[in-house]
Design a protein around this nucleic acid. Sequence first.
RNA 1: AGGGAUGUCGUCUAAUGGUAGGACAGCGGAUUCUGGUUCCGUAUGUGAGGGUUCAACUCCUUCCAUCCCUGCCA
Length: 568
Amino acid sequence: METPEINKETVSESKVVSNFIRFIIDRDLESGKHTGVVTRFPPEPNGYLHIGHAKSICLNFGLARDYKGRCHLRFDDTNPVKEDVEYVDSIMDDVRWLGFDWNEHLYYASDYFDKLYSFAEYLIEHGKAFVCDLSFEEMRTYRGTLTVPGKNSPYRDRSVEENLKLFRAMRDGGFPDGSCSLRAKIDMSSPNVNMRDPVIYRIKKTHHHRTGSDWQIYPMYDYTHCISDALEGITHSICTLEFEDHRPLYDWFLDQLPVPCHPQQIEFARLNLTYTVMSKRLLLELVTTGLVKGWDDPRMPTIAGMRRRGFTAAAIREFADRIGVAKASSMVDDELLMFCVREDLNKSAIRAMAVLNPVKLTITNYPEDKVEELEADNNPEDASAGKRMVKFSKTLFIEREDFSENPPKGWFRLGLNNEVRLKHAYYIKCHEAVKDESGEIVELLCTYDPASRGGGTEDGRKVKGTLHWVSAAHAVPVELRLYDRLFTNSDMSVIEEGKSYKDYLNPESLIINTACMAEAALMNVKPGERFQFIRQGYFHVDKDSSEGKPVFNRIISLKDRWIAKSTK
RNA sequence: AGGGAUGUCGUCUAAUGGUAGGACAGCGGAUUCUGGUUCCGUAUGUGAGGGUUCAACUCCUUCCAUCCCUGCCA
């Protein structure tokens, strides 16, 4: 896997909007509870990072940046059956690409396995943990339900010596998977089911991506996470809302153990985006069933997917800043993400002309073999982007949609006898639309006004419509991949009775366009470059491109007020 | 009477007892060699009831709605 350098775009200090977490930190700093801020981003390496993780990354690394503290990257790798180095690598890659740096603070929960084990013996010695022989089914029965208290395990009162002996036997591979577990001794009648003697170690004779076959037992999340935080001196341990019920357990472990500090767990609402799914399970399923072409499919909400699509890290960071942080569950309109992408690209993307659905246009009063070079600016938003020369001749291509024989009200593109401007070139008028037997237009016969060279005339007459175009003899064919939302349902958490998320797949989420004719310069582009195809949208050169065969991903179309108006 | 949490424009989010503000989306207009960009304008909101207070999104109280929790997943 490629390992890019830290994103060159500077992660500038963003205008800070207060939120409840900053409020807590300010208070802790003011009261002297803390003298600095240490946060962490703790992914489990069992899938690729998505836009929801990006929110968390921007939050945690952003807090560290703004408070001049530090943010650790820690892999929560306590379940070897689901985890893999491929994910570890992709996660580091994505965090770096987003523009964040953990410096030397890279950690793995698996680095703490020895300490975690010792702490477990400490709990046993203090009568706070026991080895339980209950099977999965029995344990479920003993746990009770949400409204009925649980019952104590019959193994709950084993002696410290016996527990120690059994736990060591577990460690040494003396028992098969699932035959027994180490449990905390808390309270089976707690209304919070997480406190009903939760399992803290289970037997898994599974190879671990970092510790190999060193361990036969692995610690559970609740036990591991709080201790890892404490060991690293985390001050504020920020996680999502579903862990709110786990906070008493987080605090319980740290209260029982001789750990260096007691971080504060703070929960915030995870990101939900319209028209997308965010669950790792579903994302994995999309990949493994081939519904998308890999984790970096440009339709995926993964960071790898958005990166390949052509979104910039700056746009994603801006998005994270704009959505804010709160505790109320929410669903963010994907238009906000698109806004951030357009906002960033508008300033930076080089303009070019490409005709997606070409129709031939002949300028009847233009000399047969003449070819002119016309000057075009590369970016009207940025004069430093310079200018380029574009070839113009008698035969051109324009968009088929830019001509209408019976134009609707408000139309100011090409029609019979109305004048439009060809961007950077001349004013033209159309006199005839030539059709084939089936009635389809095959050629537009136009005349041009030589006095309008460059796109304007001395008389200053107004020409409302401006079209993009390419010279037929000089244009090059390019492949376009037109991406759209993967799903058709704005709230994917609401699935109709009897349907599944697959029933909401958008059949037009990818349209491959091989008819596109582009200005010649686009033949020599490199993967990673971004352009604005004038009047169409932003495009990103895909890694599937090869010499002389460029492939462009449509990042996002331009906003189009005409469509909005004309379909009303 | 299981527990935990959350309700502010359509959406996201500020206001921490003192003018309910911003952004996206929408709508209207101006500018424009991209129906893009930019600029200007505009409508829409404190879940409901009661109470405390000179003053309540904020405090108290009752109700309602929504989300999360019964993995040896994280």
